[in-house]
């Protein structure tokens, strides 16, 4: 934690997202999936993005990686990575940008491995394609990477189906950090896994982060997990950020009614058993206003008091 605190205060940001607007367009109408979203991620910082399915958090991740395809359209705003305009990159620049600068681990990444190639061949591919290493050198580095996530390098010769779900997910994380990216995007990296495996993978991501110093954009709907891992976080609803602050601050004093509801959507493991209400199928807030700073570093969108009552 101490490492993060120092880098947290340094104000050097690796990624700046400003007033990002993403729309899904059809012939007749446009749906705004991400609406005027702004945030920074500092060097070595773990930044969390929380919210339910459909709130736009994965769309933001895909915008940063420039993976959006028609009908999704970036309709406004800017994404700056290390001073470079990500939205203006051409194909060649993008190829270098992806994986070398920013790597992403998808939700069911363990199923994204090629089933007919060994783990080793898939890892070697990364080095030969993106870094131009020889096969021998690539194999050596692949073995190191597996050791980094505590998988026996002998597994380089294994096929994905010979590994457990947790091992596959760790192998994918190892691949993501292969080229030492400055930013790692984790989109629900442990949703499909058991609690114990999840715990282990999160601990490993923390270790890797401490060792390699990359920044993380961590996306999940699990608030407890996010608070445990992230330094700073933002909560999204209906494409807008409703609250952002240090993770501990949000955990201790959530201000927005939606943040409070999301925190209450999980039953606790301690304390008395009391009925919870959850959020219902379609809790959305109409027009979410811009954020206001309530205490230093803690920004909240003002919410109508009646909304809080209705939750």
């Amino acid at each position: 934690m101490t490492v993060s605190q120092t880098s947290f205060g340094s104000h050097d940001s690796v990624l700046e997202v400003r007033d990002l607007v993403v729309q899904y367009v059809s012939d007749t109408r446009a749906i705004t999936a991400v609406d005027r979203v702004s945030f920074d991620i500092g060097v070595g910082e773990i930044f969390g993005l929380a919210g339910e399915s459909g709130c736009g958090k994965s769309t933001i991740a895909n915008s940063i990686m420039r993976l959006l395809r028609h009908p999704a359209l970036i309709a406004g705003g800017s994404i700056t990575f290390g001073g470079r305009d990500v939205l203006a990159m051409d194909t060649d620049e993008l190829r270098r940008f992806r994986w070398q600068d920013v790597a992403m681990v998808f939700q069911s990444a363990m199923n994204s491995l090629n089933p007919v190639m060994t783990i080793g061949d898939q890892m070697v591919d990364i080095f030969t394609t993106h870094a131009g290493y020889s096969r021998k050198e690539s194999l050596r580095r692949s073995a190191q990477l597996l050791e980094l996530v505590r998988i026996d390098p002998a597994r380089l010769r294994s096929y994905p189906h010979q590994l457990s779900g947790g091992m596959r997910q760790r192998a994918v994380i190892a691949m993501a950090v292969a080229l030492k990216p400055s930013l790692l995007i984790l989109d629900e990296p442990t949703t499909a896994l058991d609690v114990v495996v999840q715990q282990e993978i999160m601990a490993q991501i923390k270790d890797l982060q401490r060792e390699l110093g990359f920044s993380v954009l961590f996306i999940t709907h699990d608030m407890s997990l996010m608070v445990e891992l992230s330094h700073r976080m933002a909560v999204m609803n209906s494409g807008r950020i409703v609250e952002t602050a240090a993770a501990k601050t949000i955990h201790a004093s959530p201000r927005h009614p939606y943040t409070q509801a999301l925190m209450n959507a999980f039953p606790p493991l301690t304390g008395p058993r009391r009925p919870l209400r959850g959020l219902g199928d379609d809790v959305t807030f109409g027009d979410i206003p811009d954020l206001e700073e309530v205490t230093p570093g803690h920004f909240v969108a003002p919410a109508a008091p009646s909304l809080g009552a209705s939750l």
Binding site: R150, V195, V196, Q198, Q199, E200, M202, A203, D222, S224, L225, V227, E228, A247, K248, H251, P268, L269, T270
Partner: peptide
């Protein structure tokens, strides 16, 4: 199992290294 449940309130109440080994 209990120790693996993420709970910010109990953060740091166990040793992840030891648990990984046990697991």
């Amino acid at each position: 199992l209990v120790s693996a449940v993420p709970d910010p309130a109990r953060s740091g109440s166990y040793d992840p290294e030891e648990r990984a080994r046990l697991r």
